[in-house]
Amino acid sequence: MDLLIRERNTRIYTGGRPFNREQPAVVLIHGAGHDHSVWTYQARHLAHRGYAVVAPDLPGHGASDGPALDSIDSLADWIVDLLDGLGLTRVSLVGHSMGSLIALAVAGRAAQRIDHLILVGSVAPMPVAPMLIEAARTDRDRAHAMINQWSYTPTGQLGASSTPGMSLTGLNRSLMAHQQAGVLAADLQACNDWQDGLRLAADIPCPTLLICGERDQMTPPRAVKPLYDALVNSTGHARMMVLPGAGHAMMAESPDALSNAIREFLVS
């Protein structure tokens, strides 16, 4: 469905079911250079299990009007406006990569509205290799190739896809190419610049789940420890789980395991 947020058109995918604000709401926030379609399986799974799914295209991404916002804080403010626009007073937030930083920032500024926080493929801070940011600015094809190489396991890059007939890296490459010029670079720079993650994590009052890919090269499990330590000592406490064999692109590489993990945490 499409909705006006800040007087700009916003595409919201609801998982193939009509949006029903009477149901518990889950907001799925995509990562850099992506759109809602990275969440297709998880969105459909939750929508068919009694949740009101809200998977927006962030401003300037996918079918949502631009311009893209250039900081995690401004994206978090936008998510709060999105919740207001949908009339949602309480939600659970799920974010992937850049989306996980946005979710953390939303939880920091609207803690009383968040039931569960699920951070997928997340580290804080989230430094981005300068050569990747530069490639995103000057040579998008090269940047997309680098992201594919670091986001998928060798099996995901070469071997059988979870979705019959689809090339996972081909899908991701085309999805990134669909975004407007400059969007990926702005996203990556925003990830790199945001330094408030550990401070905010220490005060998160809701239950939090960190989901890591065992073979994630972008946000490897060993790099998650500072964020996990901050969250586990917060009042909401935190759990961490590792998806066996998965890379950074967990939604595509391990769709069932990720859907199960999200749903089981939401009902816990």
Binding site: G16, H48, S161, T163, G165, D256
Partner: peptide, 25 residues
């Protein structure tokens, strides 16, 4: 379509999927 997988070979088949993904690559 909450989960990927095969239902009936007219729609998809694991052997055919290898050919499809190989050509796509």
């Amino acid at each position: 379509l909450e989960r990927p997988g095969h239902v009936y070979t007219r729609i998809s088949n694991p052997t055919n999927a290898v050919l499809e993904e190989r050509i796509a690559a």
